[in-house]
Amino acid sequence: MPGIDECLLEAMRLPGARGAALVDWTSGLALGTVGEAPGGDHETTAAEAAELARMAAEHGTFAARGDAPAPVEDVIISNGDSYHLLRFVDTSFDSSVFLHLWLGREEGNLALARIRLGEMAARLVLG
């Protein structure tokens, strides 16, 4: 069963992966980081990504209808040279965490990364 570090290292094996982190979106704390951070600072990256994740998680506009296990699955940002993929981790205990994967646009495959990151998020907390 993977721990936090193994999960992040696995995310880094995805094609084009530049950096990955497990972040708490209430506090903005990075509970684990690997690889690069945009701007070179994992702490700032975590705080800014947490703000984005919190908006997505808290605003009813983005929530699934009905009895979905979590209101939001992921948030995707694309820019000229990279993708940012934020995947919410659905835990059985009370928490507010997501996986953040930073992916180079040339080598990265967004669809594949989205599927894999979802699987990793599930394995992290379900074993």
Binding site: M1, P2, L29, R123, G127
Partner: peptide, 18 residues
Amino acid sequence: SGVLPTGALELCHLDALY
């Protein structure tokens, strides 16, 4: 003892510690 997934326990432990 493997009662809980490693990631869940690590995450909960860090949450509680901070």
